[in-house]
Computed example of a mutant assay.
Amino acid sequence: MFTKQGPTLRELAVQALSSTQRGYDLLAPKFDHTPYRTPDRVLDSVTRALEPLGPFGTGLDVCCGTGAGAGVLRQVCRERVVGVDFSAGMLAEARAALPPGTGGPAVDWVRADALALPFAPSFDLALSIGAFGHFLPADRFGLFAEVYGSLRPGGRFVFPIGAPPAVGSRAYWSFLGFDAAMRVRNALWSPKFIMYYRTFRLSDVLDDLTGAGFSVRLMALTDLGERPDGSPRARLVVATRE
């Protein structure tokens, strides 16, 4: 599937019938050869948006996966970067992809649940990319509260968020169909695999961030293009622990 180096259809089926954690442990060695990895142009856009907000000392990549976000943090943080994920397989790939001495501060990799982060308020910047579909709406406030508790006063929690696809577009029906299939799968099969595309609405996200104590502003990621109505295709959410 996807590329010669990517997972086979059988491997994807096995992963989809596993728990979220086990599924990513299995997918990890081939994850970067799938469309699920955040594209480099998005990572580059986020990096450019963060540069004028710095400098930052310490950075935390929340749900780091194979380390794409940690790579961004190494470019904008001077002192220390930590990547945290609950998948041992993904962390192993991240360690191999970003070994010490490859530019920027070294990265410490921590295995932990993002809903129970094991950190004191010691980070200047927290980043998360491409992971929010793995959290149910009921868990989102708790996730934001955990990140808030890991930041120093004045620290920022940032993440890109794309505009919803136009109603009736191919992407709209694709996301709708995927989420419907996932709901059926989770109703009929255990353990559950949590991954949804349509549960991270901007208005709800802003409410939960504010409720967790953040002040929030949005930055247009203009280099990722505009929609037909002139609005940006993607924004960077910048939530600050005042």
Rank of each mutant, 00 (worst) to 15 (best):
C63V: 03
P7V: 05
L53W: 02
A116T: 15
V205W: 01
S231L: 07
V147F: 06
V107C: 07
Y172D: 15
A220R: 09
R227H: 08
G154H: 03
R201Y: 00
S128A: 15
D207N: 05
P55M: 09
D40P: 09
R140Q: 14
E93P: 09
V167E: 15
D61N: 04
G211N: 10
G104L: 07
V107I: 11
L143W: 04
E146V: 10
Y172E: 11
A131V: 09
L27N: 02
V158Y: 04
R80T: 03
F159A: 06
L60P: 08
A180V: 09
A120Y: 14
L26F: 02
S45P: 13
L43W: 02
A68H: 05
A13Q: 06
S45E: 11
H134G: 09
C63H: 02
V107R: 03
T58N: 14
R41P: 10
R111W: 11
A94N: 06
S174G: 13
A187Y: 00
K4A: 10
R48T: 15
I129F: 14
G162P: 04
D40I: 11
Q15R: 02
G101R: 06
A126I: 12
P99M: 07
T199K: 00
D61W: 08
W173S: 11
T210W: 00
A94K: 03
T8Y: 00
D40Y: 01
I194F: 00
G54W: 04
F144D: 13
M195T: 00
A145N: 14
L176K: 11
Q75L: 06
L27K: 01
P99L: 07
R227P: 12
P165S: 11
G168Y: 04
G104P: 10
D25S: 04
R78K: 07
A68M: 11
A96L: 15
V84T: 05
A163G: 08
R74H: 04
A126W: 07
L176E: 13
Q15C: 01
S190M: 00
L12H: 01
E242Y: 02
F86R: 12
P160S: 06
D25Y: 02
A239M: 08
A120F: 15
A220P: 14
R233G: 07
I194T: 04
P118R: 11
R201T: 04
A234E: 10
F200P: 02
G59Q: 07
A96M: 14
R140K: 13
E93Q: 15
D124Q: 14
A28P: 07
I194Q: 01
V184E: 04
G211T: 07
Y172W: 14
L73N: 06
Q15E: 09
Y24T: 13
G6F: 02
V82E: 02
R198E: 00
A171I: 08
V46F: 07
S231Y: 01
A106C: 11
V238Q: 03
T8W: 01
V110E: 13
P121W: 06
R201G: 14
L73W: 02
M1F: 01
V14W: 03
Q75T: 07
Q15I: 12
G130I: 05
T3M: 09
S203Q: 06
T58H: 13
V167Q: 15
A68V: 09
V167A: 15
L91N: 05
D207G: 03
G101P: 11
G69I: 02
R156C: 08
T38F: 09
